[in-house]
Computed example of a mutant assay.
Amino acid sequence: MAHSLTLEQFSGMLGNLYQGPLEPTPWQSFLSQLNQFLDSKYVTFILRPPSDDSDGLMVNTNGSSAEVVASYNRYYFNLDPFVGLPNGKVVTLEEFVSQQDWLNSEFYKNFMEPTGVFHILGADITTHDGAQCRIRVSRGLEAPAFTDDDKALLAHFVPHLERSVALHTQINRIETERNLYAGAVDQFAVGTIILDENGKILQTNQVADRLIKEKDGLKLSGDNLQVGTPRDCQEFRRLVKQALQSQRGEQPSVVEAMRVQRPSGRADLGIIVRSVPLSEWNEGKHCPSVVIFVSDPEQESSAPQEIVKALFDLTPAEAQLAMLLANGLTLDEASEALGISRNTARAHLRSTFSKTGVTRQTMLVRLILRSVATLG
């Protein structure tokens, strides 16, 4: 028999339900509480039901092994009779499948009975954007069947679970897009450093991490970024302060640029400092406030030769030569690196000009560096 929930208990469970999308294992806290209040053996939440094309995503309060999850995904989901429930409605197994059919089913005999499951309470949910999920609450054969009170308790949370799943889906979509754009910036070999409202570092990308690790023009002092010479550092702090003031005053985004000397004598780093526009409802601390873009003139293009070859219909030799030229080598240096004669290199270059429609080496380099090849 389920325990009656006090307002405080209900509020706590509801809070964990909406916190669920941010947990390392989504909804683990809420499912564990539900498991306790319904006196069940375990609670299973399937965020994406398995299909013939893909595995499902399953969270289980008893920590089912990967083997059990894989077994269900690959075979038993096709045999599960307790699926296709009325959307958003809580039902018991007894209401959906006769006891005789349940006991005689291969799914029960080979999958449920070995895990000690007999009674099941559940609901299927399809969100407005098409996400499908299932929640299943299980008890053993020796336990009492689920009651109307148990159904009512779970039903209180179903609408909230639907909203929480919608939030989870949106967060995942935003995170996927963020990772995609961040990866594109990495491929362009541009360092990105995001500062908060106090000028402290919030986040860096791989290119920025490499430059900071080298300590050649960029370095960390605590959570603060230091650049170049003392004079460079003073100018950099001024630009960051100006960008922060612009953001706090809700003024148009400020964009400033500077060059930073490197102790090694290598080519100066190029730095862009700009304020990050706040959304209308943005509040709180540790918000992205300033973004720093860093370019390293000595960073070679990382465009894959196979992609350059496919984009411009080049031969492997022509693509190799084009990439060396794009990375700053002269024709003589490129021919030496490839172990070919200068005449052969010139022949490859003429053929490349013909295929790409350019007439000068500088135009070829610009064409490659501005193409989508660098995103490969």
Score class of each variant (00 low, 15 high):
residue 114 P to I: 04
residue 229 T to D: 12
residue 62 N to M: 12
residue 73 N to L: 03
residue 247 Q to R: 15
residue 263 P to R: 11
residue 221 S to T: 03
residue 343 N to S: 13
residue 265 G to R: 09
residue 44 T to L: 12
residue 286 H to R: 14
residue 311 L to Y: 07
residue 86 P to N: 05
residue 150 D to Q: 09
residue 43 V to K: 04
residue 250 E to C: 08
residue 351 S to H: 07
residue 222 G to I: 05
residue 155 A to M: 09
residue 185 V to G: 01
residue 11 S to C: 10
residue 258 M to S: 10
residue 175 E to Q: 15
residue 128 H to A: 15
residue 338 L to M: 12
residue 54 S to L: 07
residue 354 S to E: 12
residue 283 E to W: 10
residue 342 R to I: 06
residue 372 V to Y: 04
residue 169 T to Q: 14
residue 190 V to Y: 00
residue 309 K to I: 02
residue 241 K to N: 15
residue 113 E to M: 14
residue 63 G to T: 07
residue 344 T to G: 00
residue 49 P to Y: 07
residue 317 A to E: 10
residue 273 V to S: 02
residue 197 E to V: 05
residue 284 G to D: 13
residue 312 F to D: 01
residue 147 T to R: 10
residue 101 D to E: 12
residue 278 L to R: 14
residue 102 W to R: 03
residue 188 F to H: 02
residue 283 E to A: 08
residue 34 L to F: 13
residue 81 P to Q: 06
residue 285 K to W: 12
residue 324 L to F: 00
residue 62 N to W: 12
residue 71 S to Y: 05
residue 132 Q to A: 07
residue 101 D to Y: 04
residue 364 L to K: 08
residue 244 L to Q: 14
residue 189 A to G: 05
residue 95 E to K: 10
residue 78 N to P: 01
residue 5 L to C: 06
residue 297 P to V: 03
residue 325 L to H: 12
residue 299 Q to L: 13
residue 302 S to H: 13
residue 271 I to G: 05
residue 249 G to D: 13
residue 98 S to F: 01
residue 125 I to W: 04
residue 180 L to G: 03
residue 82 F to P: 04
residue 133 C to L: 14
residue 287 C to K: 15
residue 323 M to Y: 00
residue 151 K to S: 06
residue 33 Q to M: 12
residue 285 K to R: 12
residue 110 N to D: 13
residue 142 E to S: 15
residue 227 V to N: 03
residue 179 N to I: 04
residue 187 Q to C: 10
residue 126 T to Y: 06
residue 286 H to N: 14
residue 204 T to N: 00
residue 334 A to K: 00
residue 21 P to S: 10
residue 61 T to P: 06
residue 149 D to W: 06
residue 83 V to G: 00
residue 170 Q to F: 14
residue 48 R to S: 08
residue 139 R to D: 08
residue 272 I to W: 14
residue 87 N to M: 11
residue 261 Q to R: 15
residue 202 L to N: 07
residue 84 G to P: 07
residue 91 V to N: 07
residue 246 S to H: 10
residue 232 D to I: 06
residue 308 V to R: 03
residue 212 I to K: 00
